[in-house]
Amino acid sequence: MFVPISDDNRLRHLPYQYVTVGLIAVNVLVYVFFTSGIFVDGLEPVAYSFGVIPAVFNDFRELPSQYAVVPEGMTLVTYQFVHGGFLHLVSNMLFLWVFGDNVEDAMGHWRFLAFYLLCGAGAGLAHDLVQPRSVAPLVGASGAVSGVIAAYLMLHPKVKVWVLVLWRLPLRLPASWVLGFWVVLQVVMVASTGSDEEVAWWAHIGGLVTGAVLVLFMRRRGVPLFDRGLVTATQPNRR
């Protein structure tokens, strides 16, 4: 498995990735204060109050009044900031940290924020479509991050990414290898496990598709796809 740790891809349009860092900060704060158990043991009520519950979303079941904190439509946004465990949080935020800054750079701050939330909403809807009667809350930023991954793969497939292979061996590989492997893994897991697993694989697919479509329209004017025009270092001619 590839674990990304950094990329060789400087910002071209923005001085700093404020939205990416802000999203990470909000996710971490929500986890620490509401679901980690450090201050309150609130994972279950938070998940049921702010997660996407397909059976409730589709009016097959009614949410108990103590959990009915926000309108069901709003949970397509709120679920993105709730994580069920430390590794769940860290893995999502690591991918967002490595790849989010350049997608934000390609779109601008506000369009990237809209892009991120729309990818998460698309992921939630995909999960809801596949499991319309599920009573398990969908939580986590994986769907939104999947959209970021799709956008980065379409924008910068040739950029080199530092990864840890099996959490130990550092390698510098093209983004197309690292993220392409991740995309293929999601498709394989959907095909092999179906929709009854603990991991919401269809939400990942929904986020990927949403991100791939939205980046076509939400990137800055003049920002190319697939690293067109990228100048790479070459060996000097020898005479």
Rank of each mutant, 00 (worst) to 15 (best):
D196V: 08
W201V: 14
G42F: 10
G120H: 04
V187N: 04
G211I: 04
A175Q: 07
V188N: 03
G73V: 04
M107I: 04
V187A: 15
L14H: 05
F2V: 07
H83A: 09
L63I: 06
Y48W: 11
Y79G: 10
V183H: 05
R111N: 08
H204E: 13
V184C: 13
L94G: 02
W162T: 13
I5H: 09
L129T: 09
F99C: 08
T35Q: 08
H88G: 14
P4F: 10
Y16M: 11
Q17H: 12
L14M: 11
A55W: 03
W182C: 11
F95P: 00
P54R: 02
V215Y: 03
L129N: 02
H204P: 00
H109R: 14
A212W: 05
C119R: 07
S146A: 15
V98S: 09
R133G: 08
V188D: 10
L76F: 10
S195H: 12
L94C: 07
A200R: 00
P236T: 07
A200G: 00
D41L: 00
D101S: 13
D7A: 14
G124P: 04
Y48N: 14
A151L: 09
V209A: 12
V188K: 03
A141R: 08
L117C: 08
M93L: 15
A126D: 03
S49V: 03
V209W: 01
H109L: 01
N27C: 15
W177C: 11
R239Q: 11
P54T: 06
M107L: 06
V209Q: 08
S195M: 07
L94M: 14
F217K: 11
G108V: 06
P132I: 07
T78P: 04
C119K: 07
N9C: 14
R219C: 04
G84F: 01
V188E: 12
A191L: 15
A47W: 00
R12V: 07
A150S: 14
F81W: 09
T20A: 08
G42K: 03
T210N: 09
V46C: 05
Y18Q: 10
N102E: 11
L230C: 02
E198T: 10
S134K: 02
M74C: 07
A55F: 01
V70R: 03
W110N: 12
L117D: 04
V52F: 01
A123K: 07
M189W: 04
S176F: 08
S6Q: 13
V3I: 15
Y116M: 09
V52S: 04
P64Q: 13
L23V: 13
E104W: 03
G229Q: 11
H156V: 04
